[in-house]
Simulated scan of single mutants.
Amino acid sequence: MPPSHRITLKDLSRELGVSTATVSNAFNRPDQLSPALRERILGEAKRIGYRGPDAKARSLRTGRSRIIAVILAESLTYSINDAVASELLSGVAEVLDAHGHTLLLLSGRQHASQAPGSASMADGFIAYGLMPPSLMASADLPAHRPLVAIDFSPEGYPTVHIDNEPSSYAIARHALRKPTRRPAIVSLRLTESPCNGRIGEAHTLLPPEHSITRSRLAGFHQALEEQGFTASDVPIWNIEENTFEVCSPVIAEILDLPDSERPDLLMCMSDRIALTALTQAEQRGLRVPEDLRLIGFDGIAEGQYRAPRLTTVRQGSTEKGRIAARMILGLTKLQDTLLPTELLIGDTCP
């Protein structure tokens, strides 16, 4: 073909002796073709220089972009590096890849004026974590496009959750089977105003519907109360971001307390918090679990591969992503979904 000729879908279909619909499916709906046929079409497309259907033309023609946006509560850098968020995004991408859709990542921390313009490209939205009110109020989101929420409960939208409160209760109940004198809670973001340290009376907690941490806190408190502890008996330290760097100074504050005040059980709301505490305890010569017992939450691989192995709750982060993606593509019904969890008994709190 002459170099000046722009190769089209019709050119490729004529070259292969297949219909234009078959060629289109190879690029946009791979699940409709056998792997061998799709590989043949894509190989020939590459050979003759056909780059695929014009996305802009298709969008104008169909009114759909085949783009699904995931709106993240945290920054993109944090979310990609965080083990739990990364697993969730992997589950979303797996489903989108299989059905010829593109994943668009948006950070809820970007300026409100930037978000609607980017978001308007998408056919649907998956919101992970607490989504900013500015995005919830955007006409593009509630009025014209489907949305599925993960790990928070905006009114009027289907949600994908795990059973946070019973799961936290189950692991706390396990931890409290052995006598403890000074339990303490180390929480993921729990306060309305920034607080990277111990929560005091002046702090206001986030509403229960805005944060899974309130559900996890309720589960911990239920187990503690059954063992005779009141909420005021058990100190809570708040972590602003679930990273080693942000956790470290808070954990140091806890572990450097005098022996008579230092907790002998840390009930951590994430594996990252618990692993930070484990590392710092070892650096100080504290024995785990003899001097300090630790529980986490999430079930990330790192906590199960190192010694001592972390006692934690495993949640299906990848499966949460898959379920939300199937919903947003219309492959399954838009409905509230609650996933089970698994208690993993490790060495940090046998």
Rank of each mutant, 00 (worst) to 15 (best):
A73D: 11
E74N: 12
S75A: 11
S75E: 12
S79E: 07
S79K: 05
I80P: 00
N81Y: 01
N81I: 00
S86M: 06
L88C: 09
L88D: 08
L89R: 10
L89W: 11
A93H: 15
A93K: 15
E94W: 00
L96Y: 11
H99F: 11
H99I: 04
H99R: 11
G100F: 10
T102M: 13
T102K: 12
L104S: 07
L105Y: 09
L105I: 09
L106F: 05
G108V: 04
R109Y: 01
Q110Y: 03
Q110E: 14
H111G: 01
S113E: 14
A115S: 11
S118W: 13
M121A: 12
D123Q: 02
I126R: 03
Y128E: 00
L130K: 13
P132T: 09
S134E: 15
S134I: 05
S134W: 02
L135K: 08
M136A: 14
A137I: 02
S138M: 11
D140Y: 07
D140N: 12
P142H: 12
A143D: 14
A143Q: 13
P146E: 07
L147P: 00
F152P: 00
F152R: 12
S153T: 13
V160G: 02
H161Y: 04
H161V: 01
N164K: 08
N164V: 01
S167I: 09
S167F: 07
S168A: 15
A170I: 06
H174G: 09
P179Y: 01
P179S: 13
P179Q: 07
I185P: 07
I185K: 06
V186R: 02
S187Q: 08
L188R: 06
R189P: 15
S193C: 02
P194D: 08
P194M: 08
P194V: 06
C195W: 07
N196Q: 12
N196R: 09
N196T: 02
G197S: 11
G197T: 06
